[in-house]
Write a protein that binds this DNA or RNA. Structure first.
Length: 225
DNA sequence: GACCAGGCACATC
DNA sequence: GATGTGCATGGT
């Protein structure tokens, strides 16, 4: 009998196959996407990234050199454009100042230091930091997002108000510490969430439906952190 | 037209 | 430490 997190993974993988998540031609593009997708539908982020490419703005130097009104205008399609212009610049300033603008150099940092540094950048919270660490720097940290919390809480596995770090720790405790697995797992959660577990769920065709109300909860009560 | 989307910082209690 | 609010566009 598989543990719940292994079972979820098998069911989602059987249903969707490998997702190939995260899309992007470079680590920097992935980092930019991670900031732009904050509380925003991915389709809107894709438009913005296409414009950034067309305008030759997809590099730390170009973003830092770009005047604020122009950058904001380019970021419009992904919403919160003033906020995101500032956050993007903060990240680029950090990358330029500490790593000569090189994602490759950033990725050489040990995981815990890397995470701490990213969390110190304005506009980078836990999820964005972990997106960058896992998908751009290829280091094993499990990415938690709204879908992760929603799916597990709807399945009675965790308290809906479980804190980010507690939920991350839960996955990292129950899964093999493996970059490819973490990438795939999060991608599958996003797919499942988008298709079946939005605000109004669509459980009929959800690959995880067979696991509803089965097994002991992994962690029912926890303190938010 | 209402509701929602893969967060985060900041103010307030 | 918990809870509320602003940020903005585009799809359903």
């Amino acid at each position: 009998m598989k543990k719940p997190l292994q079972r979820y993974y098998s069911l989602m993988m059987d249903h969707f196959g490998p997702t190939g998540w995260w899309p992007g031609d470079s680590p920097f593009e992935i980092a930019v996407g991670a900031i732009l997708t904050q509380n925003t539908a991915w389709a809107n982020v894709e438009k913005t990234i296409a414009i950034l490419k067309r305008e030759r703005l997809l590099s730390p130097g170009a973003i830092l050199a770009c005047r604020r009104p122009r950058l904001e205008s380019v970021l419009r399609p992904s919403g919160f454009f003033r906020v995101k212009a500032r956050r993007l610049r903060s990240f680029c300033a950090f990358l330029a100042a500490e790593y000569g603008g090189s994602m490759k150099r950033l990725a050489r940092r040990p995981l815990t230091d890397l995470r701490e540094e990213l969390l110190g950048v304005h506009g980078i919270g836990p999820e964005t930091a972990d997106d960058i660490i896992l998908y751009a720097c290829e280091k094993p940290v499990f990415v938690v997002d709204a879908y992760t919390r929603r799916i597990l809480s709807r399945h009675g596995q965790v308290d809906p108000k479980i804190g980010y770090e507690d939920l991350r720790a839960l996955f990292e405790k129950h899964l093999e510490r493996d970059v490819a697995l973490y990438k795939d797992y999060h991608g599958l959660i996003v797919w499942t969430g988008k298709n079946y577990c939005r605000a109004t769920p669509n459980c009929e065709k959800c690959p995880l439906a067979p696991t509803l109300r089965r097994g002991q909860p992994l962690l029912v009560q926890t303190r938010a952190k």
